[in-house]
Design a protein around this nucleic acid. Sequence first.
DNA 1: TACGAGTGGTTGCGTTTGCAACGAATAACA
DNA 2: TGTTATTCGTTGCAAACGCAACCACTCGTA
Lengths: 160, 160
Amino acid sequence: MSQHPYNPLDSLVFLTNRVGRLLSSDIRKRAGDDVEGLYSTHMGVLVDLWMQDGLRQHDLVISVVKDKGTIARALENLEKQDIVYRVTDAADRRNKRIYLTPKGRKLKEDMLPHALASVEEVLEGIPAEEVAICKKVLRRMYKRLVQKMMHTTPADTTSL
Amino acid sequence: MSQHPYNPLDSLVFLTNRVGRLLSSDIRKRAGDDVEGLYSTHMGVLVDLWMQDGLRQHDLVISVVKDKGTIARALENLEKQDIVYRVTDAADRRNKRIYLTPKGRKLKEDMLPHALASVEEVLEGIPAEEVAICKKVLRRMYKRLVQKMMHTTPADTTSL
DNA sequence: TACGAGTGGTTGCGTTTGCAACGAATAACA
DNA sequence: TGTTATTCGTTGCAAACGCAACCACTCGTA
């Protein structure tokens, strides 16, 4: 078990974490005032809601991969900023459904150009077929991991 | 600029961030006691040092993509745990070089099996050529982004 | 050598974070 | 129906984080 020729640059754990953080950091820089007061968790929540509005709070805990207390307070904050609102689910009063306000939907339009520009710049010169395959692999990993998380004991959302 | 058919599942920003967090979370779960007291920033620092021992503190700030104050305190913590030690660079006394202790090197051996097992499980059934291409693309993005960061005003390591 | 600009690291401060303990609502089962 | 176990969300707390101000050191210019 010794003499591992382990190279992080060949590890998907390392690569996805670093590239993810670097891209986010770059986008944040480009966006400037557009993301004033919006932190990592806020953005994570918003992206999920842009994909599907009205998710349950618990869905966001799984998907954003943060502690449920963290998500609760992030939503409280977003609600104060009039970006989302929460509705207790009538069918199961333990759940809360999260909805975007018009302001929350508009944020998507503000952010999108920055995200597209950042990725475009980084991908310059890399063959489109390879990028497509890369996304395909990541998408499969993502779906599999989320699936797994849902059938797992709660807690433990610490991401190293 | 409206009517964007934007789908996060087709965005490398979204995919890398989520897959990265999910993988890290999964590994943390597998590792259990082996990572007791080691948080996100600590692990980030360690991985870099496993690649190359004796890096300057500033290199870690760029690579781990966290604030320099955050890195400073993480190193202070790791030093207390006897995992790394810091040496002022004689050639330029502003810099500090960071070295792994034997305990720090051993941690690599402890973590590695968990990381390998996690990735292996997630990649099951995905063609090896596609995974290889995915890594290649991410590696290029990583190098380009780090390069860019180094020629950029400091600060702004917030990663959305 | 002297001086101003720039770089790397530390520290104070307010906010965010993960964890654990808790409460409310539902589900499972006698 | 009543009792117990689960699930989802909230909250107290200590630790970690990003930011900005600061200090120590180096470098460029004269």
